[in-house]
Design a protein around this nucleic acid. Sequence first.
DNA 1: GACCTGCTGCGGTTTG
Length: 858
Amino acid sequence: MTRRADTAIDAWFAARGWRAFPFQRRVWQAVAAGESGLLHATTGAGKTYAVWLAALRAALVSSSTVAEPVASRPGSRRAPSGRSPSRADGSRWPGITDTVPLSVVWITPMRALAADTLRALVEPLAALGIGWEIGARTGDTSSSERQRQARRLPAALVTTPESLSLMLARADAAEQLGTVRMVVVDEWHELMGNKRGVQLQLALARLRRYNPRLIVWGLSATLGNLEHAMHVLLPWGGGRLVRGAVPKRLVVDTLLPPGTERFPWGGHLGIRMLAPVVAEIEASRSCLVFTNTRSQAELWYQALLDTRPDWAGVIALHHGSLSREVRDWVETGLKQGSLRAVVCTSSLDLGVDFSPVERVLQVGSPKGVARLMQRAGRSGHSPGRPSRVTVVPTNALEVIEGVAARTAIIDGRIEPRDAPDKPLDVLVQHLVTVALGGGFRADELRDEVRGCHAYRALTDDEWQWALDFVVRGGASLGAYPQYHRVVVDDDGIHRVPDRTIARRHRMSIGTIVSDASMQVRYLTGGLIGTIEESFIARLHRGDRFLFGGKVLELVRTHELTAWVRRATARRGAVPRWGGGKMPLSSELADSVLLLLGAAAEGRFDGPEMRFVQPLLELQHRVSRLPQPGQLVLERLRSREGWHLFAYPLAGRNVHIGLASLIGWRATRDAPATFSIAVNDYGFELLSAQPVDWSALVAGRLFDTSQLLDDVLASLNSGELAQRRFREIARIAGLVFQGYPGAPTGARQLQASASLFYEVFRKHDADNLLLEQARREVLRQELEVERLRATLERLAGWQVVEREIERPTPFAFPLLVERLREQLSTEKLTERIARMVGELEAAADAQSVGRGQKKKLLM
DNA sequence: GACCTGCTGCGGTTTG
C-alpha cells in the first residue's frame, strides 16, 4: 500500500516535470511513522506539497478499508477550488472518500493565504483521484459555506489560529475536532514570537487531548533558532527537524546614486533615489518596492506617478490601512502579472507566492537580516530560481547596512525569535473558550495548559489566580456579574451559562489589538481605508491629504468616519500612522560594526564601502569610527548647550533606555536636565550645563547592578505600562470592543482600559495582569535583556572620548532627530539649512578645496 | 539642497 501511494505521488510529480526532493521524502517517511516535526526550507521550495502529500499518504496508509488504488492520469484534471473532485471517473481510493471526518487542519496566519493554500491543496487531490472534501474557514467564509460546514466539516480545513479557537468554543468541539489526526502550521515563524502563537499552543494542547496521537508539523522560513522554534511548537518532545536543502541563491545588492551625486547624512525618505528606482522598475517586468512605513509608501507612490504619469494603472500601492477591496485588487494584479510595480509595506511580506515578481527593492534600512531574506524570497519564487533584493539607501549610513546584511546572510547570523512567556491575558481568554467548548475540570485543564511551552512554568498560584479571575472577577470585580464569566456546576465542570457573556466572548476571541482608527469613505460610500483618529482630528474641512495614492479633501467627519472627495490639487498632507518602531536587530548592527572596524583599519571592499569611504574617513579624522571594542563618545559645545553623542550600535530601543539611564545616573550627584535623541546607531544627551563625562565614565555609569530599578526610575515606566495594559485588558476580556458596525469609540475603549488599570492599582495591587503589563514593557518596549547585554559589553570596551567642533557624520542625524521632535517642518528646514551652511563654511575654512568639500558632504 | 518615519496579522451581531 505504501509503495502504491508512493508510486501515485511520484507519478503526479513526474507529470509536472518534478522529482521529489530528499527533504520531501523525509517528511513523508516521518509522517507515515506518526512523527511530528518542523520543516524548514526557503520559500518556493515545495514545503506545501511535502507536508500535504505526507498527510494524504498517511491517511491512505492507515485507512484499513482501502481498495485497489489507481492513479488517474496525473495532472490531467482540475478540481474547482474548495470542492471535492468529481467521482465520475472512479480512479481513486474508495475507502477514503465521502465519509472522511475532519482529519487535517491547516493553519495559516493570514486569511489571504487561506484561499491560495486551498487551491494548492486541491490540485494533487484531483490528480490523485482522492475524493476528499476540503474547505477553508476564516472570518470571511461565506455563510453558505459555514452552513455546509455546520452540517459536516470537510476532511481537511484551512483556517487561522483565531478561527480554530472559535471552533474550540463550540459546545460540540470535542466531537467536531476530536477526529483531527494532523495539524500543519504554515509560517510558524510568523506566529511563534507573539501571542497568536501562544493561543495556537493552547489550541494544539486541546487537540492533543482529544487525540493523543496527533501529528503536528510546522513550516518555517529561516530563523536563527530553528530547534527552539520546533520545541515551542512540539513541547512534548521528539519532533523531527527537516531542513529542505534545496540550493537557493540569494542576491543582496545596493542601488547607489549615479555619478558623483551627493547623499544626505541623515533622512529616511530617500526620494532623491527616485530616478534610479524608476530605471530599475523600467528594466523589470514586475517589481515590489518595500518601504518601512505607510506614509513613506504613499509618498513614493505619488512621486513615481509624478515622474511617470503613463504608469497610472500599472503601478499600485499596498499597505495595511487600505481597504481589503483595494488590496485584493492589487494582489490579483500582481498574481496575474498585470502590474509593473507595487509600492508596499510589510503587508506583502507574505502572500504573493506563485506570482511572477521579478524584482524586489527595499527602500531604507532593512532593520534585520531575516526580514531582508523574507523580502528577497518574494522574487524568484520557485525551485532553482535565485532570489534577489536590492537595498535602496536613503542616507549615507544605510549604504553600509546593505553590505552588512549580505555578510550576515553569508555567515548565517540570522535573528532568533523568542516566544512569549506566560501571558496570562491569553490564558484567561482560553479558559473562557474551553469553558464554552463543553466545559473543563480545573485539574485536567491545568495539566494540559502546563504542557504548552508558554506555560511550562505556570505556578499553582498563577493558575488559581487565572481561574479565580474568570469565575468571580478576581479580587476587585466581585460585585460585577458580567465578570463572573465561568460557573462551576455540581459535577465540578467549569462552564459559561450566560448567553450574553458567551456571545461577547466569541466576538472577542483573538490577541490582535488594533490602533484607534477612523474609516475614510468617499461621499458616495466607497471605503478607501482607515486612518488614525488623531491625524484626522488635526485636519479641518477642506484640508487635503494623501491617502490610497490619491489626494483627498476632507468634507466632514461623523462618528468614526471621515467623508472625503477627490481633490484636484497635486499635494496634500501625508497621514501619520502610529505604529511599532522596529529597532535595528543585534545581528545587523553587529555586522555594521564589523564593517566600521574594517573601515577604521583602512579596508573598504566593494563598491558600496568605497562609496561611503570619504564619509567614513571624515568621521575617523575629526572624531573616531565606532568599532568593536570601542565606545566613541563625542562632546560638542554649541549655542544650544553641551552635547554628548555616543554610538553603541544597539538599536533605538536600547538607546532610549541607555540614554535615560546614563542621564539619570549622571544627575544623581549633580542636578541637570537632559534632552535626549536616539536612533539605531547611538544617542545624544543635551544639557544646559557642562557635565564631567570623563569622571562619570570612570565611575559606574555602565554598571549593570540594580539595572532594573535604575531603568524603572529613569523612565516613566508607569505610563508605558498603562498604555500596554490596554491590549492586555482587551485580550483578557475586560473591555468589550462593541458590535461590528457600531464599534465602541477608541477613546472610550482607552478610557475603560485605564479605568481598570486605576481600579486594579488601588484595590487589587496583586492583580497579575498589572504585573504582566510591566513585564511586557520591560521586555518588548525597552528590550531590557538586550540593554543588559549592551551594558555588559560596554563595560569591557575602551571608551574613546573626542572633543568635536561641529557635528560629525554620525552626530548629524541625531541632531536632526531631536530638532524634528521640537520644531515645525518649516523651522526644521531652516535649521538644517543653517547647520549645513555652517558645515560648508567650516569645510571651506579648512581650505580642503572644492573637490574635497564635495566629498565631505557626499 | 540637504528635513519630512515608524509594520503586520484576526475575529464578531441579530430572532419573537
